[in-house]
Every structure is written in C-alpha cells, then in structure tokens.
Write a protein that binds this DNA or RNA. Structure first.
Lengths: 187, 187
DNA sequence: GTCTATAACTCGATAGAC
DNA sequence: GTCTATCGAGTTATAGAC
C-alpha cells in the first residue's frame, strides 16, 4: 500500500514540472520507486493516477488561496495579497498549466482544475464585492468579472514569462494589475 | 516540391489545434497527403518543419496585429480595437499556445513566438504612450508594463476559457481590461 | 500488494527503390 | 522529389510469479 502513496507523490511532482502528456508511466514508476504492476493495481491507468494527484493538488491550492485571500486586512488588501504572491514565471501554475494541453478535454483532469479556479474566483470576487461595499473601490465594475480578469493576468503572466524567458514578467504584470485596481479608488 | 508546401500547411493547421507535442509526423503526413520520406527530404525533422510553420504563423500574426492596432482612430481606440477582437477561448492563441509546452525551451520554436510577442507589445505600448502624450489616459503607469499586462489578460483568458469550457470567458476578461483602462482617463 | 517480463502499439527518423 | 518499407526506442497496458 506504500506504492500507491509514492506514485501519487511522484505524479504531483513530475506533472507540476512537465504537465500530463510529457510524463510517462515509466517516469512515474522510476520517480516513485514502485514496480511496474503497482500503477495498474492501484489505478486504472496513467490518467486515473493523474486525476487523483490533481485532486490533491487542487485541495492544496484551494487551501493556500483561502489563506492568502483570507480575512485579515482590508478587502482590497486581501486581493493585493494574492497579486503580491511572488511567482516564478518559468515554472507555470500547478493547476493552470494543464489548460493548454489537449488532455484538459478529459473531465477527470479538468474537474480538479476547474474546482480550484471556481474557488479562487469566488474568493477574489467576494473580497472585491466587500471592497466595493465599503467604498474602497468604485462599484461600476462587476466583482466577478474583475476576479476573472485578475486570474487571467496571472495565468497569462506565466505564458508571457515563458516566451520571454523572463521569470519576473509575470510579477510585473500582476503589479500593473494592482495599479489599475488602485485607479478604481476614491471616486 | 508540392509536398513541402502541403506539409507546412498541415503543420500550421494541426499545431494550431493541438500544439507541437501532440502532433506526430504521422499526423502531418496524413493531413498533407505526402509520403513518408518527403518530410525528411525537405526538413531536418518534425521540429524543423514546426519551426518553418511557426515562422509563417508569426509573420501572419504580426501583420494582423499591425492592421488591428494600426493608425486610424485615437490612440486609446487602437488599443481597444485589439482588446475587442472576438476570440474563441476554446481554441487558444496560435502563438501563445506553445508557451506551456516544454518544447518552448527549444530556440527554433520559441523565437517565432517571442518575435510576435515583442511586436505586439511594441505596438500596444506605442499606442498607449501616444494616448498618454495626448492626455487620453494618466501618465503614471509605464506604457510597456501596461502592454505586457494586456497581453497577459489575452493569454490567460484562453486558459480560463478552456478550464471553464466557456468560449466567451476570454472576451469578458478583455472587456474588463478595457473598463480598467477607461478608469485611467480624465484625471 | 508487489514484483519482473513482455505485449501491442506509436514515436521520430532512416534506407533505398523509383 | 516522391514513395514504400522498416528501424530502434519509447509508449500505455497486461500477465502472471511471488
């Protein structure tokens, strides 16, 4: 039963680095130290293992998002706290990196990613709505749409960083998003 | 010599749909109608063919960007014209979709993508700088950084769209970006 | 539950006839 | 310049001993 846990751990590590398609069962067995049959004893196949691994990553990312966007500080500061997270643009989002792969069409892989995105959008939209209610920022923009755009900046920031081979491009993009949000204040 | 052109055409089509890694030489031969040896007669291999195809796509996308961000209309309107392009979020950017793949590490694939991104950022930054000079928007934000963020919104919009399976999520994200830019006016 | 061995297939690339 | 045939390696998955 140890092999099962080791396989999931290996999948979480390797698929963060390389995504789904670029990781082979062979890689997973090697990384985990498990024997050939173990993968297919505990899981239906590579995709089933990936699905379990992504489910765990999704849980971890949701928890992290709740801590980041959490409850202390002003509503707008909580949104800024999410944008202020220092990101390595060359790595890619542990969840969002699967969006570009064709495997995202498979429900078992897409669902954990969608769950994280919905949770994150809800957290950001909640904080933005609160910021609007308390007069921190203008009310004319829909909080849900603003949250969606903020998430797009982060996801797209990874893309731009990788193309430019500049691990900080993403952090400059989120900094600019902060500046734009500030321009919604005091109206 | 017909096979060469057909192979490039096939690569441009299939790699738009599926990226680099998910397209095999087999797929390319089938789509193009060329025989097995033709690929390796005209190109060094799959990557060389992809590089030529991406080069052509990069040229086309640069030209399209120049037309879109072009010269007529106010500077800010030209930026809005780029954001207003209707995008199918489920498809993915013809260039940006390669950013998430590990093959982007290969210079011959990354270069055409980077060339397009630099061209686009330059066009957007130029229009934004002009908008600032003419007093359309506030000057306190760097035009280059704003352009970078706008590109991130578009690239990330594709990611969010695909995860949500909502082809319009990207268009809502760009619409919100427009609204935020408008909040920089009249200060 | 874990392992070794291997099946059946596809991958990117090459050889060589025409 | 194009084709058919095929290589060696790597892919996902299965069989069956322990």
């Amino acid at each position: 039963m140890k092999a099962k846990g080791e396989l999931v751990k290996a999948a979480k590590k390797l698929m963060w680095e390389r995504g789904y398609e670029a990781v082979s069962p062979r890689d997973l067995l090697e990384e985990s130290g498990a024997g050939q049959g173990s993968l297919y004893h505990h899981f239906k196949g590579k995709m089933d293992l990936a699905s379990v691994a992504l489910g765990e990553v999704s849980d971890e990312m949701c928890e992290l998002a709740r801590e980041t966007v959490g409850t202390d500080g002003s509503a707008l500061d909580r949104v800024f706290r999410y944008l202020d997270v220092s990101r390595d643009g060359l790595k890619g989002c542990r969840m969002g990196r699967f969006a570009a792969e064709s495997s995202i069409a498979e429900a078992s892989l897409r669902k954990p990613v969608e769950r994280y995105f919905r949770e994150l959008q809800g957290l950001l939209a909640g904080a933005l709505r609160e910021a609007q209610a308390e007069g921190e920022i203008a009310k004319r923009l829909d909080a849900n749409e603003l949250a969606l755009m903020i998430m797009a900046v982060v996801q797209g920031g990874f893309a731009v960083s990788r193309v430019y081979r500049d691990r900080n491009a993403i952090n400059r993009a989120t900094e600019t998003a902060k500046s734009l949000l500030k321009s919604l204040r005091h109206r």
